[in-house]
Structures are given as C-alpha cells and as structure tokens.
C-alpha cells in the first residue's frame, strides 16, 4: 500500500483522484489510527494554521508521539522567533509600506504572512470560486467590480479575495480563461483585490492529467484553497461560495 506517498493534506482538501481517494478510504477502514489522524488533520488544518504553527504531519504507526510533539513545540518556537525577528526588521526597514498588504503574502508552505487584520471598519470578502462556467466567473467579476467601485466612491475600506479552487481554477489558467485581460485590468485598478489559486488543485492536474498549469500573471498561489478559506472565515471575512 502506497498510502504514505499520497498527500493526506490533498485528501483532506478533496483534491485526490477517485482511485487515490478509494485507496485512502480503504486504508482508513483497515487502520483506525490512520482514520483518526486524517480526521484530526482536517480539524487541525482549520485551527492550527490560524496560529501559523505546523500542522502535525500524519505519521502512521508512530510510537514516538512525545518526541514528535517536542519537535513541534521546538519548531513552533523557532518559527515564532523568526517571525518576530522578521517583523521587527521589516518594520524598521520599510516604513509606510501599506501597499505590502495588497497581497496575501504566502510563504512556500502556504501560510499567510500578512494576516488580514485591518481597521475594524474594513469589509473583507472572500469569494470561493469552484465553478468552471466562464459565465458564472464573468458575472462574479462584474459583481466584484461593482462592489469595489461602490466602496471606493463611498470612501469605505474593502478587501476582496477570489480564491480559485478545483474546477474554479479555470478562471486563472492562462490557456483556459476567457477573462485574462479583465483580471489584469481589475488587479491593476484595485490594490485591494487579490486572485488566489489553489496549489493542491494545480498539483492534482499535474499528477492525474500531466498538465503543467500556467497561471495568469496576477494570480497568487496558496497551498490549500480549503485551508485558506477556513482561515479567512476565522479571521472574520465574509464568505461566499460561487
């Protein structure tokens, strides 16, 4: 059984192929501990990423729980120090860099470095796009633009993220999207608008279909669309699935 080779994070995000998913399900039936780990992973992905800590990696048949948790604590502490140091250095060296908040800054592991903590009166909206229909995406872009215009006209602060996930990734795929120029225009006009692509979806397309996804230039990438969506909701963002 090659369960170790399957990314359980991808399983939790629903990004595996049917075959791989069936394999995981079968393994879970035979191995309650694994099932428990996957269940925990699902919950922890939601909770622990908020704190920017390492989600525990599934490690089947492990007898070294104590050792692992010590490592996690140590790693967490180290990350915290690095984060504090980096924050201190950046604050010192880059005064007045408000525009750095334009993007959800994502490190290679998909953890946000610029949490969306903003002025209390800022409206923050996350659109979770999972629909491949270009008309649906086009209508979404219309609505987003109308909102951006209205908030700007009223002088009310607004931040919008469009997270493209699963079939919704088509909006940000250079070869498939019919909205590339529109996206470029909107992203150019509005600093408070971000397009985010799900890396798990990109990886799945590579593994299952041999497709190397090329994103439109304005797209950011997050490790897991689902985790990103959960994190944003816990940070108080409005959430709309399209």
């Amino acid at each position: 059984m090659s369960i170790d080779e399957i990314d359980l994070n991808a399983y939790v995000d629903g990004e595996l192929s049917h075959d791989q998913e069936a394999e995981v399900l079968e393994a879970m039936r035979d191995n309650p501990e694994l099932a428990q780990q996957i269940c925990q992973l699902g919950q922890l992905k939601a909770q622990m990423r908020i704190a920017y800590a390492n989600p525990p990696q599934p490690d089947r048949g492990s007898m070294r729980r104590v050792g692992r948790s010590w490592r996690a604590v140590a790693a967490g502490g180290a990350m915290l120090s690095v984060g504090l140091l980096a924050g201190w250095i950046m604050n010192g060296n880059q005064p007045g860099t408000a525009e750095h908040n334009r993007f959800v800054v994502l490190d290679p592991e998909g953890r946000g470095q610029a949490p969306a903590v903003a002025a209390d009166d800022e409206t923050r909206i996350l659109f979770h796009l999972t629909n491949a229909d270009p008309m649906v995406a086009g209508e979404l872009l219309d609505e987003v633009e109308t909102m951006l215009q209205a908030y700007e006209a009223d002088g009310r602060p607004l931040r919008v993220e469009v997270v493209s996930h699963s079939d919704g990734l088509e909006l940000l795929r250079q070869s498939l999207t019919v909205h590339e120029s529109r996206i470029q225009e909107l992203a150019g006009d509005y600093d408070n608008l971000t397009f985010v692509a799900c890396k798990n979806t990109i990886n799945r397309l590579r593994v299952d279909h041999g497709i190397e996804v090329q994103l439109v230039p304005d797209a950011e990438v997050t490790d897991s669309g689902v985790s990103h969506v959960v994190r944003r909701q816990q940070q108080g963002w409005s959430y709309i699935r399209v």
């Binding site: 409206t123 909206i125 109308t146 909102m147 409005s238 959430y239 709309i240 699935r241």
Partner: peptide
C-alpha cells in the same frame, strides 16, 4: 440591487452563511 452584496451585509449582521 446585488444579491452578493446582500449576503455580505447579512453576514456582517451576524447571519450564518449556508450554500
């Protein structure tokens, strides 16, 4: 005027979103 803006407004007023 806008259904999506209405959903945002309602969520701001404490309504839980279900799709």
């Amino acid at each position: 005027d806008s259904g999506l803006a209405e959903i945002v407004r309602l969520q701001g007023d404490g309504y839980t979103y279900i799709k």
